[in-house]
């Protein structure tokens, strides 16, 4: 599974302050720790960054790339900031991942940028009609997004469809719908479409003690249906052990008694 490390997020106080003060140290520490723990992409979330988005994203991409040789997942709703990030990104270590487009018109320019900069892109199956009702609904939206991708010259293998993970505590049936969608997304193209989830959303609103249990078990179920990537905390050892165990059970890695230590 492709692991997108979620720790550099504007939601975290430490990161927010680092972004505000242009302090590279906390950013670089988080980036390095996540890369060492096995992250394939480092998510760099700066939020909407309305005032100085482009300059902020440019700075963030460069400081992270000073310490990790991994592609980044650029996470902002600010189109200009996204473009600045794509320009600053060092593609020597792999194409960046745009986080994200959807079927909402204000997010279309993200797909255009992905085409222009040869980037990969996360596509939320969320449309004008609001939250999708079920897996079928998600596939309809996914098809529209894929058609737009073709229009902008984004190869299908660069698109990661995101079924939109909703809180299990308020919309219990949506967890299963997301799992079904992961399976169905793969049928939309040959070779199969790739998929991604922002995993921890599933347990938003649940008590802190039960959240990791929900997250880990949900991830295992998604992986069984063929999930390609997840935005998770790679520093969470139990989570990483779940990924390793599922990969091993699915035959993607070879068993050895110490498979968890690899």
């Amino acid at each position: 599974m492709i692991i997108i490390g979620e720790k550099i997020s504007v939601i975290a106080k430490k990161v927010r302050e680092a972004l505000m003060n242009r302090d590279p140290k906390p950013m670089q520490e988080l980036a390095k720790a996540q890369a060492d723990a096995g992250a394939d992409f480092i998510d760099v979330s700066i939020g909407p960054a309305e005032d100085n988005g482009p300059e902020l994203m440019d700075w963030a991409v460069k400081v992270v790339h000073e310490v990790v040789k991994k592609p980044l997942c650029l996470d902002t709703t600010n189109i200009a900031a996204m473009e600045a990030g794509l320009k600053a990104h060092n593609n020597e270590w792999g194409a960046p991942l745009v986080n994200s487009t959807s079927n909402e018109p204000e997010r279309f320019p993200m797909m255009e940028l992905a085409g222009k900069y040869n980037a990969k892109i996360i596509a939320l199956t969320l449309g004008k009609g609001g939250i999708p009702a079920d897996a079928e609904d998600r596939c309809v939206i996914a098809s529209e997004i894929m058609a737009r991708g073709m229009e902008y010259g984004v190869p299908m293998e660069n698109i990661f469809l995101d079924p939109l993970i909703l809180q299990i505590c308020t919309m219990q049936d949506q967890g299963l719908q997301a799992i079904r969608a992961i399976k169905m997304f793969q049928e939309l193209n040959d070779p199969p479409m790739q998929s991604v989830v922002g995993l921890s959303n599933i347990s938003n609103g649940a008590p802190k003690a039960v959240r990791p249990i929900i997250n880990r078990n949900f991830l295992a179920m998604l992986l069984y249906e063929g999930l390609s990537a997840a935005i998770i905390d790679p520093l969470d050892k139990d989570m990483m052990d779940t990924v390793k165990a599922v990969d091993m059970i699915m035959g993607k890695t070879m068993y050895a008694h110490s498979f968890l230590d690899m």
Partner: peptide, 14 residues
């Protein structure tokens, strides 16, 4: 034994 071959290499690395 392919699994034990891998295990020995892991142990050596460790």
């Amino acid at each position: 034994d392919v699994n034990l071959a891998k295990q020995l290499n892991i142990l050596l690395s460790q």
